[in-house]
Design a protein around this nucleic acid. Structure first.
Lengths: 322, 322
DNA sequence: CTGTTAGCGCTTTCAG
DNA sequence: CTGAAAGCGCTAACAG
């Protein structure tokens, strides 16, 4: 049965010193003599006593909590982002709260509110695809809670943002296609509302040779990408494909394989480097490394928290084509 | 610039009532007259005031925090579990903390300690595959923090556990294979240390006809499963495969397809129902629904938290073969 | 129905 | 170097 947990006071009266001494000793405050410090720390260790960090944080007006607010834990990328974040944050003794908006603006508004109410020290936010402005983040500013946008973002001069350099990366893919010399390409983008879809599309088209004929579509899932790719192959014998995500690449590669064209087709796109390159060894891809994005995002929010301000930097993580 | 946040006291002195009245009004305490209650709530709404839940929780000796401790956010299943958990918890105003152990026992021990120190209200734990006993959870018991095991677990009469009925599910797969009538099957299990690997293996073999010849292996990833399956096809023209996870099924299906045997081969196993059934339409699978597992786990920990005890129930979620 | 008071467990001035 | 005392913002007896 649970016993009433020990407090600093208990320890103090047992050691016949004052609570403040115990507190200081436990925090390695230099004021405390080595002797007392050791005596305190030793007993604490023996009794497995750890001061209630909840109370300490309350007193210090901090929560040591960073909230990660995101639409959905997609099957690729996002899990790695979360790992990157938790790892970086835990190194600084911050804990990671996860709130999911299911791509509903209303849920996002509510989540941000809750974060503010519970006084998290900082917020990492990937916008829902219903979100078109950043009004609901005003509250964070007035409460002085730093916030950093990542992955799906909107341009803002109030908040920092982190993503890979989507446009440049898509440009690299276009360069490869240019080199390859085919006169036709089919490109599959993700959901139209996503900022990454738009940025990658822009970068792709800005680098692609103007005399290459291109068919493109927005696809929500592998199935849709499959249908589009299948159709393109049947109609135009397309041999070059660009796909914006693992999801759509799966559809494309499946279509290509069904037509037995794997060897003679170039498929290039964005991937987390797991399933897709395994499935299609010839795949050329921009490695979209969630862990790096997560680490940078964590780094940035930690910086903001430490300084108590929002830096409105827009960090673009450079990428490579594999 | 951030202003010093308002407090209940501020609101009280403004309204010329006592802080406790404000507190009670905000919490819809029946003692407070409707008139006062409305006046308070209205002003609070106008000023966007929300009491500091951190302080309230501290006072009430609760954190409204449930920690989810797990080895790794695998690419399938676990993201759904997390979604299921957060969704269920947020309905009861609990927040979800995510701690990742990277399958290191040391990290797990540390994570549990941290959870205890920060007085989370409950813990959901999926064991690292280095964990062989539950000693390090003693602290939770003495501190009265309820804990529920899920996914990768060890049998324990101290803590509840949640998973799908792995043995029965694997048995269903074996039944299907029996019916199919082939005299040979290749079975791929996951990492040997995992409880799910063992449970599924047991269930599989206990139902499988004894006169079926079976080759089996433990595979860590798709690559390993691929090599094994490829080898079996070459050596024995195996036409029936069992795979314990999406990861190994990917390897198996790839090998089968490379040999152009998709139509004549039976592949059966455990899947989250996303990538694999798309990749191989003929796949027969146990739908391993993370959301359901997450929801049940959340439900269970909420129950424990409410009653302040650990129920040592072992819940097995029934599954179907698709 | 409302106010007064005490105190959650810790940190941190301020004295000594 | 150590102790006393105040107080973070809120809630909950206990009075009235």
């Amino acid at each position: 049965m649970p016993v009433k947990p020990m407090t600093i006071k208990d320890l103090a009266s047992f050691l016949k010193v004052s609570p403040s001494t115990v507190s200081r000793a436990l925090n390695n405050h230099p004021d405390i003599s080595l002797e007392v410090r050791q005596r305190v720390q030793q007993l604490a260790a023996e009794l497995q006593f750890k001061p209630n960090s909840f109370a300490a944080n309350f007193r210090k007006k901090q929560s040591k909590l960073i909230a990660v607010v995101l639409p959905k834990i997609y099957r690729s990328f996002i899990p790695d982002v979360i790992e990157g974040i938790t790892k970086r944050l835990s190194a600084d003794q911050f804990q990671t709260l996860v709130l999911i908006t299911e791509d509903q603006l209303a849920n996002e508004v509510e989540a941000i509110k809750q974060c503010c109410d519970m006084r998290v020290d900082g917020i990492l936010l990937s916008l829902s695809n219903q979100t078109t402005d950043l009004q609901h983040l005003e509250r964070c500013k007035t409460m002085g809670i730093p916030l950093v946008l990542f992955d799906n973002t909107l341009q803002s001069d109030a908040f920092a943002s982190i993503h890979i350099n989507d446009a440049a990366a898509a440009g690299l893919c276009a360069d490869l296609i240019n080199q390859q010399g085919s006169s036709r390409v089919a490109a599959v983008f993700g959901p139209e509302e996503l900022s990454i879809s738009q940025n990658r599309k822009l970068g792709f088209f800005s680098n692609l040779n103007k005399d290459i004929e291109v068919a493109s579509c927005y696809a929500k899932d592998a199935q849709a990408a499959f249908r589009f790719a299948d159709d393109q192959i049947k109609k135009h014998q397309t041999k070059v494909f660009f796909g914006i995500s693992d999801e759509v690449l799966l559809g494309i590669v499946t279509a290509v394989k069904e037509h037995n064209l794997a060897k003679e087709t170039l498929v290039v796109g964005f991937s987390d480097g797991l399933t897709m390159p395994f499935l299609h060894r010839e795949l050329r891809y921009i490695f979209h490394d969630g862990k790096v994005v997560g680490t940078h995002a964590a780094e940035q929010i930690l910086k903001s928290v430490a300084h108590g301000v929002n830096f409105n930097e827009h960090i673009e993580i450079p990428v490579e084509l594999y």
